[in-house]
Design a binder for these strands. Structure first.
Lengths: 74, 74
DNA sequence: ACTAAAAGTAAAAAATATATTACTTAATGT
DNA sequence: ACATTAAGTAATATATTTTTTACTTTTAGT
């Protein structure tokens, strides 16, 4: 999707707050590829809900603290 | 994805709580097809994060009140 | 019983996310 | 300066989500 709002994430920041966790380490912990993490940090696309939950769980944060939806009113 | 946890949603319940909102009405409000809503209620797959945010917004609830991630410990 | 609206089912196409592979660039330590 | 590790880029393949279309069944009202 992608006309209305945009998804932002705090992945990069949270990685550093978690002892400079590496992209590869996060990827492994979340059960995805490093490229997936890369693409998310580079905002190439937004993740599936499942992946969003997994990443949040790695950081021990509620999903909405990791991902946010910036809505442009239609 | 889909080995570890499962995503549950409260869409159907929330539709009824919102004045018996119809699947078609929710679909329109969220900017997707009725089939998409159907498939989500039938748990055929889990949505994109963006759609999850959109649906939550229609119900005026935080995402985590509409969608939950039931995690089976690995 | 009839009608209309809503919900369910299904198949295939289109769009988007994720994996795989491989290479390049940047950063860090020795 | 060299080696190593992390990060960035990119192309293609695979998987998953969403649309489109069309038809069937259920539900509610008259």
């Amino acid at each position: 999707m992608g006309i209305q709002g945009k998804i932002h994430n705090q992945i990069r920041r949270l990685r550093f707050e978690h002892d400079e966790m590496t992209q590869a380490a996060l990827a492994k912990a979340a059960g995805v590829t490093r490229q997936t993490i890369m693409s998310l940090e580079a905002n190439k696309y937004s993740p599936s809900l499942e992946l969003a939950f997994k990443i949040s769980r790695v950081f021990n944060k509620p999903l909405t603290e990791v991902f946010s939806y910036e809505q442009t009113e239609p």
